[in-house]
C-alpha cells in the first residue's frame, strides 16, 4: 500500500489571486470591527479589491477573490454558515453576476464608478432578497428598502472613486 499524497502546485496566478484575496479578507475583517449604526449598512470596502481585480485580471479572478473573501472572512470572524455568512455570500454572488454583465458596457462611457454603483446596489438587493425570503419573511423589511439602497449607492460611489484612483495610480508608468 502506498500512501496517498496530494501535492498542489500553485502557479504564479494562484499566488496572485491569493495575495489579492488576502487584501480583501483584511479589509473585510477590519470593517467587521467598525460598529455600524444600522444593521446591514456597511461600506463594503473589500469590494474595492474585487473591482480592482475585475479591471486588472478579469471576471474569473475577481469571482475567486470575492468568494474567497466571503469564505475566509467568515472563518476568521467565526460566522461560517451562519445567517451573516449567507447574507455575505448572497450579496457577493449577486454583485458578481451584476459585474459579469456590467463589464460588457462600453468602457468609453462607463468607468469603475458605474460598475461600483451597480455592484453595490446588486449586493444590497441580493441580501434583501435573502432576508425577505428566508430570515424575515414578513413584509416589514420593504420599508427599509429606500434607506438601505441609499447607503448602498453612497458607498458604491465612494468605493468606485477609490478604485478608479487606485487603477489610475497602477496604470501610471513608474518613475525612476
Amino acid at each position: 500500500m502506498q500512501a496517498n499524497q496530494l501535492i498542489l502546485h500553485p502557479n504564479h496566478e494562484d499566488h496572485h489571486i491569493a495575495r489579492l484575496a488576502a487584501y480583501a479578507i483584511l479589509l473585510h475583517v477590519m470593517e467587521a470591527m467598525i460598529p455600524s449604526p444600522l444593521p446591514g449598512v456597511k461600506p463594503g470596502i473589500a469590494n474595492i479589491v474585487v473591482l480592482y481585480v475585475l479591471y486588472r485580471d478579469g471576471w474569473k479572478a475577481c469571482a475567486w477573490v470575492s468568494l474567497l473573501r466571503v469564505l475566509a472572512g467568515s472563518l476568521v470572524l467565526g460566522s461560517f454558515l451562519t445567517p451573516t455568512f449567507m447574507l455575505s455570500l448572497s450579496g457577493a454572488v449577486s454583485s458578481l453576476l451584476c459585474l459579469g454583465l456590467a463589464q460588457f458596457l462600453p468602457k468609453k462611457y462607463f468607468g469603475p464608478l458605474s460598475l461600483s454603483m451597480l455592484a453595490a446596489l446588486a449586493h444590497m438587493a441580493g441580501q434583501l432578497v435573502l432576508v425577505r425570503c428566508w430570515l424575515i419573511p414578513s413584509a416589514g423589511i420593504v420599508y427599509l428598502l429606500p434607506l438601505l439602497m441609499s447607503f448602498a449607492l453612497l458607498f458604491g460611489l465612494v468605493n468606485g472613486v477609490i478604485t478608479a484612483r487606485l487603477l489610475q495610480l497602477a496604470s501610471r508608468p513608474k518613475r525612476a
Binding site: L105, Y109, F110, G111, L113, S114, M117, G160, A164, R165
Partner: peptide, 14 residues
C-alpha cells in the same frame, strides 16, 4: 479621476 458620461447616467438612474 474624472467621471465618464455613463457614470453620470447610472447615478441619475439610481
Amino acid at each position: 479621476i474624472r467621471p465618464l458620461s455613463g457614470d453620470y447616467l447610472i447615478f441619475i438612474i439610481a
